[in-house]
Design a protein around this nucleic acid. Structure first.
Lengths: 176, 176
DNA sequence: GCTCTTGTTCATTTTTTCTTGAACTAATCG
DNA sequence: CGATTAGTTCAAGAAAAAATGAACAAGAGC
């Protein structure tokens, strides 16, 4: 009798386990891993991939406690990770009636995910690149003779690359 | 004036600044830095960015000694970096008459650079992603009732994302 | 054959990045 | 109010990634 009760509370078949507050189904684990790998591919910390993955799987928005508990990560990581995910628009906060805690849900639209990522992670670097190009052009202008010819040819290549790549982003966004 | 410019470009270590200033023109320094930043943006080590940048600037192919000396990097880094750059098709070896050393030159075609990078760095990860998706699908198939409904909806989203992104690469290659 | 040059490999060290946990602020509830 | 809970920040530790340099292989020139 008591054995049965303990069993049903602590651990039983995978389905009811899934319903309990602090464990992950296999498909969730696999999906979270998918996002962890994707995150690392684009240079985003593992913990952020985990958090996004968990929220992606969850039908209802989750409070931070649940994230911390289910992923077994620290409060600091969770807070930091959620902050950044919010900044790039990959998660949103949802206000749940009768609960003072913030609840978080994943953005599921690929286009939004992509443009948020670009705007916040790549964008600054690309702008920076433009400034650098201009600087190189200045330095090139100060050269003389053959040295200048070489430098100007390279500069032309860089400008060409910049043209092509800047046409790229709008197009990608159209497709996603 | 020019001191200020060089200062702002080189990482404030006086020794490497001097060593670099002796053999590299300002526009080369600036261009190399551009590539270092671009490399870090796509998750490639700094030294590889430096090496590619140097070769990009140089009209003639350079032997490894020259690269080591001008960039003030170790033999190990140079060898490793060149090996990887060769693998992804970003540099090629050139045989110079009467010189036993390999000489290296940068690939200047954007399309080739891009597809080499994809094929070697991203490609494997993407394939991996497909396998992961299939695995998630299996696990989802084993579920029952509402749990299954949720999981299948998420799986549909993932498949949709995969469709869109796989249409992307060919298109990008056409534009570059 | 021997030596000297060229280039690779890999264990160690250095640098960078990520995570943790505890101190702190804020603000809700009783 | 004071106690409790939610959430942030940041210094310190842990983990991961990259650079170094010395030992090693391969082979050209003498």
């Amino acid at each position: 009798m008591s054995v049965f009760l303990v069993d049903s509370l602590a651990q039983s078949d995978p389905d009811s386990l899934n319903a309990s507050a602090n464990s992950l189904a296999e498909w969730e684990l696999a999906t979270i891993e998918l996002f962890v790998h994707a995150a690392q591919l684009i240079g985003i910390p593992k913990s952020m991939g985990q958090i996004y993955g968990l929220l992606f799987c969850s039908e209802e928005p989750l409070p931070m406690d649940a994230i911390i508990e289910r992923l077994a990560i620290s409060k600091g990581s969770a807070s930091q990770g959620l902050k950044t995910l919010r900044q790039i628009g990959a998660v949103q906060t949802v206000y749940q009636h009768g609960d003072r805690r913030d609840h978080y849900k994943a953005e599921l639209g690929l286009r939004r995910l992509f443009s948020g990522f670009i705007a916040n992670q790549m964008g600054p670097h690309l702008d920076n690149g433009v400034r650098r190009l201009e600087h190189i052009a200045e330095l090139t202008g100060q050269l003389e003779n053959e040295a200048r010819d070489v430098a100007e040819e390279r500069l032309k290549i860089l400008r060409n690359w910049h043209n092509k790549t800047s046409k790229l982003l709008p197009l990608v966004q159209k497709i996603l």
